[in-house]
């Protein structure tokens, strides 16, 4: 068990529970003559969450100080690059369109996972970005952001 994580997670959940309780005070408390309003359910749950996370935080002080596990080295660099690429991909999806966005994202993803074999990466990225777009938009009549207008393709 990871003491630090559990403690901070407990504090975050505690804060969330308290916030839900406080905020539910602002919700109208009655609906059409019923004394049970929209505020009861979130209030009770907020209370429950606060109590449970208090118990968790309290528990973390009683964890046995366990012998330091050998730190597993996590690959933060690759994770960071792929996550950042995914965020940018999602954020600009509507601006640059599905095909271009997907192609770029896949290229970055493949090359981050493992360098080299650029032609294979290019091929797979192209096949999936065009393939998914074509199948979804033209065969299944779905809707995805197409090519950006400034390219003047349509």
């Amino acid at each position: 068990m990871n003491r630090t994580f559990d403690r901070y997670a407990g504090i975050v959940f505690l804060a969330a529970g308290a916030a839900f309780m406080l905020e539910s005070k602002n919700i109208s408390s009655s609906a059409y003559g019923s004394s049970i309003g929209a505020n009861i359910f979130p209030f009770v749950l907020g209370l429950l969450l606060s109590l449970l996370s208090l118990r968790l935080v309290y528990g973390t002080f009683r964890y046995k100080r366990q012998e330091e596990k050998k730190k597993e080295s996590l690959d933060y660099k690759r994770f960071g690059i792929i996550l950042a690429a995914a965020v940018l991909y999602a954020f600009f999806l509507e601006e640059i369109g599905f095909v271009i966005g997907t192609f770029l994202f896949l290229m970055i993803g493949f090359q981050t996972m493992q360098r080299g074999r650029i032609w294979v990466s290019l091929l797979i990225s192209a096949v999936f970005s065009f393939g998914v777009y074509y199948l979804f938009v033209h065969v299944l009549d779905g809707s995805l952001p197409g090519f950006p207008a400034w390219l003047g393709l349509t």
Binding site: I82, A86, Y89, L93, L106, F110, M113, Q114, V132
Partner: peptide
């Protein structure tokens, strides 16, 4: 199937699936 191709593709399908 090599993981290096699988991982970015799963992210692609997640983005595609939710956006669609």
């Amino acid at each position: 199937t090599p993981t290096k191709y699988l991982i970015p593709l799963i992210i692609l399908f997640s983005v595609f699936g939710v956006y669609a």
